[in-house]
Design a protein around this nucleic acid. Structure first.
Length: 223
DNA sequence: ACGAGGATGCTCT
DNA sequence: GAGCATCCTCGTG
């Protein structure tokens, strides 16, 4: 299994998101051998997208990008890994796209487990069925052992890379709205392998509910 | 099947 | 302090 080349990522983000279906995420894990999953769901995030984490870094009148903060990695080299912690719990894996200096990324949202199922099950005890191992963006990073240590690294070589796999035909692909966003739901920038049972159960275009509970303050908070 | 609610930490205002 | 590119458990039907 050879990594996809840098040129694969140095293209329009929507093309990359579509073309990543059927490709393989490979993690040569230091303890658990090689863990592999086939990509069945992706989402595109571009510089001109209110849901893009780098949205606020772009000066809309000059087009200049402020080189600050975590999200600046989204303007880095194509094929870099953008990995961040979501909701304080889940690591989410993105591949940086477009030429350096232009923002863009593809979120890997779901995999079909291919290799290393035992190790995946060990890390994902809540998974009842095989598909529950990797049918969500937080689940798949947990199953593969991907986390913040991979942020800013390259996806062009071991230990963590994407490989060619088997491209998916247009007739098998469906585009929908993205999952869990409160902005940008007007764009069908989520790509799935329609017939795959390993696609995430999330519902496209449904804005997250507002938090209603009391703020997390209280006598016994933390230590 | 589906909905509600809680857990948890980082970034930006 | 607000707002998340989520997941899990437990309730009801």
């Amino acid at each position: 299994m050879r990594p996809l080349p840098k040129a694969f990522y140095a293209r329009p983000t929507l093309d990359v998101a579509r073309d990543l279906l059927g490709r393989l995420v490979v993690h040569d894990h230091p303890d658990d051998g090689t863990l592999v999953g086939r990509i069945v769901e992706t989402e595109a995030y571009t510089e001109n997208d209110p849901a893009f984490h780098g949205w606020g870094l772009v000066d809309r009148s000059t087009g200049r990008v402020r080189p600050e903060g975590r999200a600046y990695a989204l303007f880095g080299e194509p094929g870099d890994a953008y990995v961040y912690l979501n909701y304080g719990i889940h690591w989410l894996l993105n591949a940086v796209t477009e030429e350096a200096g232009t923002g863009g990324a593809v979120l890997v949202r779901a995999l079909e487990p291919v290799l290393g199922l035992d190790a995946m099950r060990r890390r994902r005890e809540a998974a009842r069925r095989p598909r529950d191992l990797t049918n969500g963006p937080g689940k798949l990073t947990s199953a593969l052992g991907v986390d913040g240590r991979h942020h800013g690294g390259t996806l062009l070589e071991t230990p963590l890379y994407l490989a060619a796999g088997e491209p998916v035909d247009d007739t098998e692909v469906e585009a929908t709205a993205r999952i869990g966003l409160s902005k940008g739901n007007d764009r069908d920038w989520r790509f799935i392998v329609r017939a795959s049972e390993f696609v995430s159960p999330g519902r496209p275009g449904v804005a997250p509910k507002r938090r209603r509970g009391q703020p997390r303050t209280g006598p016994e908070r933390r230590r």
